[in-house]
Nucleic acid binder design. Structure first.
Length: 420
DNA sequence: TCTGGGGTCCTAGGACCC
DNA sequence: TCTGGGGTCCTAGGACCC
């Protein structure tokens, strides 16, 4: 058996842990720039507020219903997610952390009665220890476990967990699940399937593998097999290293100031490089991308991306920032308002002692030590405690008007150090 | 006026090789 | 006038996930 533990409206639940005044009332958590809704309390859901709804369309209802609105506070959510995962881990042999608020759980080799008991124990312990309500569904495959998790979410009498192992019952449940709600079937595929009359998960499951293959390719067939109880996706305990690491932001108002854009790119490079070092990797290709504002050029968004191959793979923030900022300096166009920019570290491989270049001046080891200190200081005193001067200092280009206090993570005063 | 961010995998097509 | 077959690698774009 495979379980899926899914935190209920996670971001809202996190805010509620520290602010009891948010309990029992409609609450929304917003995306960056306070742009749109990314988490809703059940009360907000029942007011008909959709996921992804832009904030500016909700002004009236927020006022009338007294909805509490919060900017997202990802440092807080990551910290609480960590506690949730640790609690689950402590009760079971192995888990796979699938996303910030979800984990697959391996229940292999545990008998049915024990599985049910353990599942409800996990639910109550996470609530008691961390204060986060979760739903836990169990079945034969990851895809079926995903389906199973939707039941305790909708039916409070299940008290948070549900074991879905009877095939007659599974089919009855699948019959009521729209095909587009199945994990792995997105908007495009579901539109295609629905026009062919394949509207429910059960109908999809009843198709032939040939038909599914011709409609959706190999990935569709995997989803189809999983719905039939055939495991295609195993539990991966050790998350594999990232193949690319990206950081990007949409600016609340857009910027045509090249200096600001370059500062932002430098910051994104530094964040990405920090993650790269954390996984012990080096990158040999950096990609910059720019989206122009849709409010210029009669709604047409111009996208540009520039790939920068590196002579030698690196994880050094200073080298990367230098490369990125000089490339950006040459590529930004005067007069264009940039709305979104980002950095992708690509072609990542494990860091190994590398052959020195023929005409290398050395100094690599020194750079490693410096990066190590940089990471240590920033881990201890908070992100951005020490930055590369190219990043500039605290010029917020994104908007967060409704931020909750830093309940569980400390964020000390900024120290500026010139690393050039 | 105002609509997020970070990932993975697959496929098709082009360039190139022998 | 006639113009092969098989393979790899890379990239861009599509689709999907939370």
């Amino acid at each position: 058996m495979i379980g899926l533990a899914d935190c209920n409206n996670f971001y809202v639940s996190c805010e509620r842990v520290f602010n009891p005044a948010l309990k029992g009332v409609p609450v929304l958590v917003l995306s960056n720039n306070d742009g749109c809704v990314i988490s809703r309390s059940p009360e907000a859901k029942s007011l008909g507020i959709a996921m992804g709804e832009p904030l500016f369309k909700l002004n009236a209802i927020i006022k009338i219903e007294g909805i509490k609105v919060l900017s997202s506070n990802f440092a807080l959510y990551a910290d609480i997610a960590h506690r949730v995962m640790n609690t689950i881990s402590s009760l079971v042999p192995s888990i796979e952390i699938y996303s910030i608020d979800e984990a697959f759980i391996n229940f292999d080799g545990i008998e049915r009665e024990k599985v049910i008991e353990l599942a409800s124990q996990i639910v109550s312990k996470v609530l008691k220890n961390v204060g986060i309500p979760i739903s836990l569904g169990l079945s034969y495959t990851k895809t079926l476990a995903k389906v199973a998790t939707t039941l305790p979410k909708r039916n409070p009498y299940l008290k948070g967990s549900f074991l879905m192992d009877d095939w007659d019952e599974i089919d009855k449940i699948l019959e009521r699940i729209p095909v587009g709600d199945v994990w792995g079937i997105g908007k495009r595929s579901s539109a295609k399937l629905v026009t062919l009359g394949i509207e429910s998960a059960l109908k999809f499951k009843s198709e032939s593998s040939m038909r599914v293959n011709s409609l959706m390719g190999v990935r569709g067939v995997r989803v189809w097999s999983e719905l039939r109880g055939e495991k295609c996706f195993g539990i991966e305990e050790n998350s594999p290293d990232k193949k690319e690491i990206r950081t990007s932001r949409t600016f609340s108002r857009g910027s045509s100031n090249h200096e600001r854009v370059i500062e932002a790119l430098a910051k994104f490079t530094a964040y990405s490089a920090q993650k790269l070092r954390a996984q012990g990797g080096v990158t040999s290709k950096v990609i910059l991308f720019f989206y122009s504002s849709p409010f210029q050029n009669s709604g047409k968004v111009e996208t540009r991306s520039i790939a920068l191959p590196l002579e030698r793979p690196t994880d050094n923030t200073l080298q990367l920032v230098k490369r990125v900022s000089s490339a950006a300096l040459n590529s930004l166009t005067k007069g264009v308002v940039y709305k979104k920019v980002g950095v992708i570290l690509s072609d990542i491989v494990k860091k190994t002692p590398l052959q020195p270049l023929l005409f290398d001046s050395g100094g690599c080891e020194k750079g490693d030590k410096l990066m190590h200190s940089l990471d240590e200081i920033n881990a201890k005193y908070g992100r951005d405690s020490v930055v590369v001067a190219t990043e500039g200092v605290d010029k917020r280009l994104t908007k967060r008007e409704y931020l909750s206090p830093k309940y569980s993570t400390k964020w000390e005063d900024i120290i500026v150090v010139n690393c050039r």
